[in-house]
Write a protein that binds this DNA or RNA. Structure first.
Length: 269
DNA sequence: AGTCACCTGATT
DNA sequence: AATCAGGTGACT
């Protein structure tokens, strides 16, 4: 489920809940979650370490542990990270359990088991993250930086936005919503957008993600999982056939790179 | 840029 | 039974 806003909401929540806590033991319940690393090293390199900080880079969560160890977690499609009280029931979909010294447990829950948990030395992280693109809610993400990234790109702009090497954190939902808000046809080649269009797109991305972080924070606030109803309304995603709220034309669904793209043929040109 | 693979579950 | 799902990496 998670794109940048959901990952950031999880990060903020965990920051208040587990930074400063010590992991006493770790159990990997599904080997594919740590693949190609073996479960044993992940377990041994996290046990007896304290969680010192939690950072996010795009959709990646980085738990900085004592002793120069980084726990790298990617939630992929269905991952979630949350704290379970000492008397809580661990669900069957838990893929990794980190037992904390105060009796609580940090659970990596992942229904589809596509998510990843790996351990690295802190000094290796810059190398491992080198291919990740602009952080859209940071000061480095400017119209100029977006224009530089898009220059000469022949990919459709929707495909371009999903490519984490350009911008880190957009996924299928918010890419579609940002393009709608900016009034851009998702099939338009990225490198052919005029500066005025890029400016609108830049503003749309920042506004959508900032709003979505806020609502995701609320949606995750109560214990349990993401509450869809709390998210701010999506204007095109998953609305094929419905009337566009602006122009009234039917929202279309097309395939790009094997994935659904939703857009309004009236508003996006 | 398209297709498959990795997984499970919801929906048609 | 078939299709779809908020992600990504390895093919072609």
């Amino acid at each position: 489920m998670p794109e940048l806003p959901e990952v950031e909401a999880i990060r903020r929540r965990l920051e208040t809940e587990v930074v400063g806590s010590e992991i006493v033991s770790t159990c990997v319940h599904r080997a594919s979650t740590t693949h190609p690393q073996r479960p044993a090293p992940v377990e041994s390199h996290t046990a007896a370490h304290r969680i010192e900080a939690i950072r996010r880079r795009g959709k990646n969560l980085l738990l900085e542990l004592s002793g120069g160890i980084v726990l790298h977690i990617h939630l992929r499609m269905s991952g979630n990270l949350y704290v379970l009280a000492g008397d809580g029931h661990r669900p069957a979909t838990a893929r990794v359990t980190f037992e904390l010294s105060d009796g609580r447990a940090l659970i990596f829950d992942d229904t589809r088991a596509l998510g990843k948990v790996h351990v690295y030395k802190a000094r290796d992280m810059p190398h491992l993250l080198r291919g990740i693109g602009l952080e859209p809610l940071s000061s480095e993400f400017t119209v100029e930086a977006l224009a530089n990234a898009a220059r000469g790109a022949r990919q459709p702009i929707k495909i371009f936005l999903l490519d984490q090497r350009h911008i880190a954190g957009l996924g299928n939902i918010y890419a579609a919503e940002a393009l709608f808000r900016a009034g851009i046809d998702p099939r338009k080649p990225a490198g052919k957008l005029r500066r005025s269009r890029l400016k609108a797109l830049h503003a749309a991305i920042v506004a959508i993600l900032a709003d979505a972080v806020q609502s995701a924070h609320i949606a995750y606030a109560s214990p349990g999982r993401f509450r869809e109803a709390e998210r701010f309304p999506l204007l095109v995603y998953n609305r094929a056939g419905e009337a566009c709220g602006i122009c009234g034309r039917a929202i279309r669904r097309i395939l790009q790179g094997g994935r659904s793209t939703y857009f309004c043929p009236g508003c996006q040109r």
